[in-house]
């Protein structure tokens, strides 16, 4: 009976599902979302935040976790529940602080990716000057001008899918064909961006 027990979903099943492909990955992510759904209610009681706010933070938590698993930043030193709850709690506390002090947004874009941070300082400084949140917002609008296939492909690329996986998902014959198509899409985006 569901009243006293939650469906069992082991950490191993979740982790393997997230790093798998396609439907299994989506299904696992959805099951993960559902599995710890009660965090939302807990947060409304514990942190006195609205349910919609808690739900938004919970979704951010799940997305952050998925990203951490994919990028192997989740080392499995704690149980998945503990790890998720820690992220979620931090997000709730940040959110409350942000509301109290009106400081930076929790959802702020983090344009400086890990690999740029590893660059030499001079190069990094130049790039930092060229990158801004506003430009990202503009680019997001320009992406909408691209065809569906290009949008799908670039979104998959943005999410970290390799060309071979993109080829598989979107029906390209080889990863090279997918790569060429992707770079063409990026060129097209650049054209829209420069206009």
């Amino acid at each position: 009976m569901n009243l006293f027990s939650r469906n069992t979903l082991s950490d191993e099943v979740i982790l393997n599902g997230i790093i798998s492909d396609g439907i299994l990955q989506r299904t696992t992510e959805n099951r993960l979302y559902e599995h710890f759904f009660y965090f939302i209610k807990d947060a409304t009681c514990k942190h006195k935040i609205l349910e919609d706010e808690a739900a938004s933070l919970y979704t951010d938590t799940i997305l952050a976790f998925i990203e951490n698993v994919k990028s192997k930043r989740f080392e499995g030193k704690s149980s998945l529940k503990t790890y998720l709850y820690q992220i979620f709690s931090n997000k709730c506390v940040d959110f409350i602080r942000k509301n109290a002090t009106n400081k930076m947004s929790v959802h702020e874009t983090q344009p400086m990716q890990d690999w740029v941070l590893a660059m030499p300082d001079d190069a990094k400084n130049i790039l930092q000057k060229l990158i801004s949140d506003n430009e990202i917002i503009v680019l997001k609008e320009k992406i909408k001008l691209l065809g569906d296939k290009c949008q799908q492909m670039l979104m998959a690329w943005g999410e970290g899918f390799s060309d071979s996986k993109i080829a598989e998902e979107l029906g390209y014959q080889t990863s090279n064909v997918a790569k060429v198509s992707r770079l063409r899409c990026l060129d097209k985006l650049k054209e829209f961006y420069k206009k």
Binding site: L63, P111, L127, I136, K140, I143, A156, G158, E159, L189
Partner: peptide, 23 residues
């Protein structure tokens, strides 16, 4: 440098779109 910045921003923009869709 501009091309590099574009590449990065395009990646982040697409990443965000993916996240928004998933949200």
């Amino acid at each position: 440098a501009k091309e590099f910045a574009f590449y990065m921003q395009a990646k982040v923009a697409n990443q965000e779109i993916g996240k928004e869709k998933r949200k």
